[in-house]
Every structure is written in structure tokens, then in C-alpha cells.
């Protein structure tokens, strides 16, 4: 059972559980570079590698919240840099709507974020993850949309 499936965290101190969908060509490479460069960043983000940020179905985001994610990050190439030329432009439109839809359902918009992080932007990856972890720590655990077990 993955950490995402298991909402039971150690009782001592609560740590945010962030699911990140990272595009194979940019963000995943950027995260890899952050690791190679020995950058320190919080281990709260669990990356799921997807071929393109456009592959990230809105249902993935909902499912992550259902299974205990405190926040979801979708990250891909900068507009204009997509490996498939246009995938992230569709991502941008889709998630502009999705973020507003989640807010409409009563979910704090900070719990869903999308970012453009290129393969060479290891410091940006580190900063985004660090900042998001701090934000979610301040917000506290997410109970909304969570599947009751």
C-alpha cells in the first residue's frame, strides 16, 4: 500500500501529504536535477511521473484528495516548451477551470496548485515544494472529499 493510500500518519507530528504530478520531460527532470545537485527540500511531496502535464486527468486530482492527499501539485513544461508542442496549453485551460471548480466545492485553492518547472529549474522545484509544504502545514490536514474508511 502506498503512502497515498494510507492516511494514517505517525501520531507524533502531522506532516502534509502532497501528491505531485510531474511531466516526464521537464518537471521530473527538474526534480531529478534537484536530487543530483543535493538540494534539500521537504520529503512531503510524492511525485507521480506522467508523460505530459496534459495527461493529468482532473479525476487524478480528485482521487488523490479522496485517498488522503492534503494538497495536489500538477507541474509541467513552460508554455512553449512542451515536448509534445501543445500539451501544456490544454493543461493550462483545464486547470484554470479545475482550480476554480475545487474552490467552488469549498476546497482551499492553495490545496491545488499548478506550476511550470523546466528540466533545468531545480532551484524552482525546490522552492515550489518548500513553499507549498509550508503553506499546507499552516492550513492543516485536509478532511474535505476524503474517503471515510
Amino acid at each position: 500500500m502506498s503512502a497515498v493510500d494510507n492516511p494514517k500518519q505517525p501520531a507524533k507530528e502531522w506532516e502534509p501529504n502532497i501528491v505531485g504530478f510531474a511531466c516526464n520531460w521537464c518537471t521530473y527532470a527538474g526534480a531529478d536535477l534537484a536530487g543530483l545537485s543535493r538540494m534539500q527540500y521537504p520529503p512531503n511531496v510524492k511525485l507521480v511521473r506522467v508523460p505530459c502535464s496534459g495527461r493529468t486527468n482532473p479525476q487524478f486530482v480528485l482521487r488523490a484528495f479522496q485517498k488522503g492527499a492534503d494538497a495536489v501539485l500538477v507541474a509541467g513544461c513552460h508554455p512553449g516548451d512542451c515536448h509534445y508542442a501543445t500539451g501544456n496549453y490544454f493543461t493550462r485551460r483545464r486547470y484554470l477551470l479545475m482550480q476554480r471548480m475545487l474552490e467552488f466545492m469549498g476546497i482551499d485553492p492553495r490545496r491545488f496548485q499548478a506550476r511550470w518547472i523546466s528540466g533545468s529549474e531545480a532551484p524552482k522545484f525546490r522552492d515550489v515544494v518548500t513553499q507549498m509544504t509550508e503553506e499546507i502545514k499552516a492550513l492543516g490536514p485536509n478532511r474535505k472529499l476524503r474517503e471515510e474508511i
Partner: peptide
């Protein structure tokens, strides 16, 4: 396997948002 069919509030919310995004 990741789409539940049970009629619980969370799965119904999943259905409602998915449906709305499909017809967006």
C-alpha cells in the same frame, strides 16, 4: 479501479465534479 461506484458523499462529489468537467 480508481472510480468508485458507491453512493457515498465523497464518491458522489467525485462523480459530480467529473461530470461537470467532462461537459465543460
Amino acid at each position: 479501479g480508481w472510480v468508485n461506484k458507491s453512493a457515498t458523499p465523497t464518491d458522489n462529489a467525485f462523480f459530480a465534479v467529473t461530470r461537470a468537467m467532462h461537459v465543460a
